[in-house]
Amino acid sequence: HSLRVHINGKDFEVHNADEHVIRALEELIRRGADADELKEFLERWKG
């Protein structure tokens, strides 16, 4: 899957995101994670 996440006016393109990554991202958003947390998660995932 390809996923586009809009954080703090920046678009993050997440390519080849598997279900696990997408679910983790949705969980963060549901918990009310702020932009920094989401960005950190995506950067860690992209490795």
Rank of each mutant, 00 (worst) to 15 (best):
G9V: 01
F41M: 09
I29V: 08
L42E: 03
D18M: 05
F12T: 01
V21M: 12
H6W: 02
D11S: 11
L25V: 08
K10C: 03
V14P: 00
D18A: 11
S2Y: 11
E27N: 09
F12A: 00
A24D: 09
E27L: 05
A24R: 09
R44V: 10
N16D: 10
A35K: 03
D18S: 13
H1P: 15
D11I: 15
F12N: 00
A17V: 15
F41G: 01
R44P: 04
W45N: 12
H1L: 03
H20A: 13
R44W: 12
E19M: 10
V14T: 02
E19P: 08
L42F: 07
D36W: 07
I22E: 03
L42S: 02
R4M: 07
G9I: 00
R23Y: 05
V21G: 02
R23T: 08
V21Y: 02
E19D: 09
L42R: 01
A35I: 15
H1D: 15
K39C: 12
G9H: 01
E43F: 03
A24W: 08
R31D: 12
I7S: 01
R4K: 15
L3P: 13
I7G: 01
I7Q: 01
H1Q: 15
R44T: 12
G9N: 02
L38V: 09
I22S: 02
G32S: 05
A17Q: 07
H15T: 10
F41V: 08
V21P: 01
I7R: 01
K39V: 14
H1T: 15
E19L: 12
H20N: 13
N8I: 01
G32W: 03
V5L: 07
K46G: 14
E43K: 08
L28R: 05
K39L: 14
G47A: 12
A33Q: 03
H20C: 11
R31V: 10
H1N: 15
R44L: 12
G9Q: 01
E13L: 06
L25G: 00
F41Y: 13
G47T: 13
K39G: 12
V14C: 02
H15M: 07
E43S: 07
V14N: 00
W45D: 11
H15S: 08
S2T: 14
E40V: 10
E27A: 12
E40A: 12
S2K: 14
L3K: 14
E26P: 01
I22W: 03
S2A: 12
H20K: 12
L28D: 00
S2H: 15
W45G: 11
V5S: 01
F12G: 00
V5P: 00
A35D: 08
N8W: 02
R23H: 12
E27D: 12
G47Q: 14
L38P: 00
I29R: 02
G9T: 00
A17E: 07
D18Q: 08
K10F: 04
